[in-house]
Amino acid sequence: MTENKIEEVETRREIHDLSSLESFLLHNDNFKNVSYISDVPEVCKEYPCILGIDEAGRGPVLGPMVYGTAFIPINEQTLLTTLQCADSKALNEEKRDDIFENICKHSKKMGWAVEVIAPNSICNSMLSRSKYSLNQVSMDSAIGLIKMALANSVKVEHVYVDTVGKPEKYQEYLKSLFPQLHITVAKKADSTYPVVSAASICAKVTRDHALKVWQFHEGIKVKEFGSGYPGDPVTKKFLTDHCDPVFGFPQLVRFSWSTASNALEGNAYHVEWEKVEDEKSGSTQKIPITSFFDKINKTSLEPEKKRHHFFTDRCLSRNVKF
């Protein structure tokens, strides 16, 4: 987790509607993770709260994965239904944008936070030496959001999380980290608990707008890149049109997705990385027994002069040719 620390924003840029969300996203380098927490209303510090957590953009080959949370005092939770917080996938983009702005407007009653995990940061984790899986990235982000809410004095009572992997195992893991909190981890929590729906909407809206204002630091001109789902023909076209033979794709793309690596195989030069040391493959060279009966070659009798390990350690050899 040390590598992907949530970065603090130096100058606080308030988000209170869609346009300030966009300027916040534009202001931060899109190849680094960034997180944001709204102002915490007094009622959330005073009265026990429920806190929901959900993610957006786990599957697509493009763009950030966003983790979102929303929190509200237990005795105010009917507000969520009034705001029509329901499964974010069942709502269209316009509706989600509206609900997000309404959540912002009710800043005296509820609060929210997001962590934007850059596509580059996802690849870096998945392609690190000690494989840091997407599930672990997800859990760590959720944990980070709970910690951020607690650090900002939200009186968290009950946490509801949409699961990654097996809910029982995940719930146990969270309980061990936050023994003082009630924790519910469930499948499809975003359609069951309005507070998770609210979190899901914050995450989804943030991801959509992050893509909308995406700046290509590579300086390439891109008309459209589609949804990022492998079946989307626009995404497919984007991946073939914007593939540099050496560097591959711009950093919007998650190289660690098979869609991306398959597209690279045909359109870019082959790259070979150092193999991660595998203990099993310590092959002991077998010399066939018949080799002892071979005619002895005279030159092989002269022992080859071995170089001192100072040189072999450093891969130094004599070379007179280029």
Binding site: K32, I220, Q251, F255
Partner: peptide
Amino acid sequence: APVRKYFQPFVQKTENNVLTASFRGYP
């Protein structure tokens, strides 16, 4: 290779003076 476009803009320095960058998603 377009190093200036695809590589240089993403080189960062950490607190302990280590440089970080990515190549095809590899850290």
